[in-house]
Simulated scan of single mutants.
Amino acid sequence: MKLEHRHILKTLSWRVLGTSDTFFLSWLLTGNPLSGMKIGVTEVFSKMILYYMHERVWSKRIRDRVVHRRLFKTLSWRLIGTVDTILIGWIVTSDPLTGLKIGMTEVITKMILYYLHEWVWERSFTVQFHKQQKLLSNKMN
């Protein structure tokens, strides 16, 4: 799979997971499912663009130790995602405190979800890489 296609698929899978989390947290904290939906739908677009850009920047970095790389990617993405959520929550509810509550609450849930998402994608990439290496070595023999 081409790296660009992988980034697009990874962006889409993360957005489904992340938007679901944001929708439920926003609904829970505002008590209004419509506000949760508005925040979630707005985030679909803003965060897909931001996540794709984040993934492209990280793909250009030298491969650090996998655990450290995953941790730093998790932290950098969470900072970007939290600021985006706070701003969208504030705009949708017209209340900066509500935007802040939503953004700060999802820091924990999103970091856990993102870390696990990275782990799954790294494992799938490693398995795919080893299969390709084995095919190449078999063809050479």
Score class of each variant (00 low, 15 high):
residue 23 F to T: 02
residue 78 R to V: 09
residue 111 M to H: 01
residue 59 S to L: 06
residue 113 L to H: 06
residue 69 R to G: 06
residue 113 L to I: 07
residue 42 T to C: 14
residue 63 R to K: 08
residue 113 L to T: 11
residue 106 E to F: 00
residue 74 T to P: 12
residue 67 V to P: 03
residue 76 S to K: 04
residue 105 T to K: 04
residue 43 E to M: 12
residue 55 E to P: 02
residue 54 H to V: 01
residue 110 K to M: 15
residue 19 T to S: 12
residue 14 W to M: 07
residue 76 S to N: 04
residue 56 R to K: 13
residue 83 V to E: 05
residue 113 L to D: 10
residue 65 R to I: 13
residue 82 T to L: 07
residue 44 V to M: 13
residue 32 N to P: 00
residue 27 W to T: 05
residue 84 D to C: 07
residue 48 M to K: 06
residue 72 F to Q: 04
residue 39 I to D: 04
residue 112 I to R: 02
residue 18 G to C: 07
residue 28 L to F: 02
residue 76 S to G: 06
residue 98 T to N: 06
residue 17 L to F: 08
residue 83 V to G: 04
residue 101 K to R: 04
residue 69 R to F: 08
residue 34 L to G: 05
residue 33 P to C: 10
residue 27 W to V: 00
residue 36 G to L: 00
residue 17 L to V: 00
residue 45 F to W: 05
residue 62 I to M: 10
residue 87 L to P: 01
residue 78 R to Y: 02
residue 102 I to C: 09
residue 69 R to Y: 09
residue 15 R to W: 11
residue 70 R to W: 12
residue 21 D to K: 03
residue 30 T to R: 00
residue 94 S to E: 13
residue 61 R to C: 07
residue 55 E to R: 07
residue 33 P to R: 06
residue 58 W to Y: 01
residue 41 V to N: 05
residue 109 T to F: 15
residue 33 P to V: 00
residue 68 H to G: 14
residue 65 R to S: 10
residue 30 T to A: 07
residue 24 F to S: 09
residue 78 R to Q: 14
residue 51 Y to P: 08
residue 103 G to Y: 00
residue 91 I to C: 09
residue 27 W to L: 13
residue 69 R to M: 07
residue 52 Y to M: 08
residue 66 V to A: 15
residue 99 G to N: 01
residue 114 Y to A: 12
residue 18 G to R: 05
residue 74 T to M: 14
residue 73 K to A: 13
residue 63 R to M: 12
residue 25 L to D: 11
residue 43 E to S: 11
residue 40 G to R: 00
residue 88 I to Q: 10
residue 109 T to I: 15
residue 91 I to G: 08
residue 55 E to Y: 08
residue 96 P to E: 11
residue 63 R to F: 12
residue 61 R to E: 12
residue 78 R to F: 06
residue 44 V to Y: 08
residue 60 K to E: 14
residue 107 V to A: 14
residue 22 T to V: 10
residue 53 M to R: 04
residue 54 H to A: 14
residue 60 K to S: 10
residue 61 R to D: 08
residue 66 V to P: 07
residue 61 R to F: 12
residue 56 R to C: 10
residue 37 M to P: 02
residue 20 S to T: 11
residue 35 S to A: 15
residue 79 L to D: 06
residue 60 K to Q: 08
residue 64 D to L: 11
residue 21 D to T: 11
residue 65 R to F: 14
residue 93 T to P: 08
residue 98 T to M: 15
residue 13 S to F: 00
residue 50 L to F: 11
residue 96 P to K: 03
residue 44 V to I: 15
residue 110 K to R: 12
residue 31 G to I: 00
residue 23 F to N: 04
residue 62 I to Y: 07
residue 55 E to F: 03
residue 34 L to E: 03
residue 87 L to A: 15
residue 88 I to C: 09
residue 88 I to Y: 03
residue 33 P to E: 03
residue 53 M to Y: 06
residue 19 T to G: 13
residue 70 R to G: 14
residue 96 P to N: 07
residue 88 I to V: 15
